[in-house]
Amino acid sequence: MVGQFLRRHGGRIVTYIGFLIFAFVMLFPFYFIVVSSFTPRYEIFQTPPRYFPQNLTLENYPNMIATIPFWQYYANSLIFAIGSSLLSTVVSAMAGYGLARLKFPGSNLVFLGLVLSIALPQVALLVPIREMYNVLGLNNTHLGLIILMSSLVTPFTVWIMVSFVNQIPVEIEEAALIDGATLWQTILRIVLPTMRPALATMLIINFINAWNELLYPMIFATRNDTKTLSVGLISLGREAIGTSRPWDRMSAMSVLMIIPVVILIIFGQRAIVSGLTRGAVK
């Protein structure tokens, strides 16, 4: 009897129970951060903790902004994330097309080398880059940070681009070439428009990656005019008063850091999922 019931509805029940557990685990730290940011300081430092705060307040936000040059960091993060997502996506799309369509002796080797270069950990290459940046004067510059971050995400982006181009039928390009269009005209007028979904996906993903990056800005942007939000959040945490960290202001800052990426995933969910799954199938 039970078995029969389960066979008929079991799947659906299990799915919904699974969904509830999943949603709770994924969202409760998120809920905690958001709620903390609207909780008055004295209530945050209270035991036992309140799961549903009684007095909501906005004061943590101006308090946070008065402690650190928040808007400056915000602008720096935007420049860093927009700059590196644009640069990495454009150069990877170019390379992706080159590797997928314009086969030359050794092109597979180049592709393999690019993908395998992911295995060289970012943190283990810092010293020579720092020396080089000292010589080139790229420390504490937006350009220097954007170059590093773009390079970090290009292997994955090229990978996605190659598999995307491989799925576009080659006939349209051939027809254009036969009609007398040059290779560059074909690329600009035919290939570029068809690659638009892949470009959008990788712009979003690379923006998020850069927005969240800590290591590069921490090492190569030590001054306020280039410091990003991730580094700012850490330095806010180090401003410990007494024994406890300033969680009231840190949570307010966290919420303002989360807002852009949450907007991106709400509107770009399909694009992100299709982009990431495309990378995996190959």
Partner: peptide, 28 residues
């Protein structure tokens, strides 16, 4: 579900780390 799934992935690691640090805090 797919959108919720992306939230932990998309929020900065630093934010996740300090948030969880506070959840695990010995006093609060």
């Amino acid at each position: 579900a797919r959108t919720i799934n992306l939230i932990p992935w998309a929020i900065p690691m630093v934010v996740a780390a300090v948030g969880w640090r506070w959840l695990f805090d010995g006093t609060y």
